[in-house]
């Protein structure tokens, strides 16, 4: 038997951070003990109508207290159900899943777009503990309803972009990079595909290695069903075709190995 498991975990905190954005802490010392920044958990509905787990990124890991935090957006009936739970309720969860980020370099540039922001918190926290590592984070929001910004400021120099210009740089995360003239020796990103595509191009042009975290519809969450694949540049050593499993080989991929 391996390092992943599925359990019923107790919710120790559930708060609303912004419109449709919720923060949930669960007690799961086994998973908290082995989880890494950039990994995710699969959350299951209690309704027999909704069979498939929802992949939710890990936002914070409290190894001492054996707890894990997830910040998620209500996007449908499943996440709506999670958001209506109460402290003390329990939830079915499987994990930790995926590979997570590899912590490298001395000047880190983190990109979080929308619901891709949460995994940046644990990552920033861990990078800040690396000796001599400078942590910068660019957070992209739709509008001025910001979330997790202040918490990230504890570990990183934070820059903000909003689509409507109501906070920070008007435009996207790369517009904020231009405005502030940011440089780095390692890029970490999570967010919508168009943003990742832009970062992939930017990283290539600037010769900065980049780790991109992808999202895809999942069924098994552990690499068996081949639902959540992404296109790879080279023939993958596991699949023997040009694709990789987001849930198992990812969700974090080197920008050079994937086609977005």
């Amino acid at each position: 038997m391996g390092e992943k498991r599925k359990v019923r975990a107790v919710i120790t905190g559930l708060t609303k951070l912004a419109e449709d954005i919720f923060s949930m802490w669960i007690e799961e010392s086994f998973m908290a003990g082995s989880a890494k920044a950039g990994q995710f958990l699969a959350l299951y509905s209690d309704s027999a109508e909704r069979l498939l787990p929802r992949p939710i990124s890990i936002c914070e890991i409290d190894r001492e207290k054996g707890r894990l935090r997830m910040v998620f957006r209500v996007a449908g009936a499943g996440t709506e159900e999670f958001s209506q739970k109460k402290e003390g309720d329990s939830i079915s969860v499987m994990g930790p899943l995926g590979n997570g980020y590899a912590l490298k370099g001395k000047k880190a540039l983190l990109f979080g777009g929308g619901i891709g922001i949460p995994p940046m918190l644990e990552l920033a926290k861990e990078l800040a503990q690396e000796p001599g590592c400078e942590v910068q984070a660019v957070l992209g929001y739709r509008d001025s309803r910001l979330f997790l910004k202040e918490e990230l400021e504890a570990y990183a120099r934070v820059y903000v972009s909003t689509e409507d210009g109501s906070a920070g740089t008007k435009g996207n995360v790369l517009d904020a990079v231009k405005e502030h003239g940011l440089t780095a020796d390692m890029i970490y990103a999570c967010g919508p595909k168009p943003m990742l595509k832009g970062i992939q191009k930017f990283a290539e042009a600037c010769h900065i290695p980049a780790q991109l975290s992808l999202e895809e519809k999942m069924a098994c969450g552990i690499g068996a069903c081949l639902a959540c694949v992404c296109e790879s540049k080279e023939t993958d050593s596991h699949s023997h075709v040009k694709n990789k499993r987001v849930c198992k080989d990812g969700p974090v991929f080197s920008a050079e190995e994937i086609v977005l």
Partner: peptide, 23 residues
């Protein structure tokens, strides 16, 4: 076999739909 393009699955009430394409 490379299989189909994504999305390859969707949830339905009490079930799911897949078109992995036998990758």
């Amino acid at each position: 076999w490379p299989g189909n393009k994504t999305p390859r699955i969707a949830e339905i009430a009490c079930g799911m739909m897949n078109a992995i394409g036998l990758q």
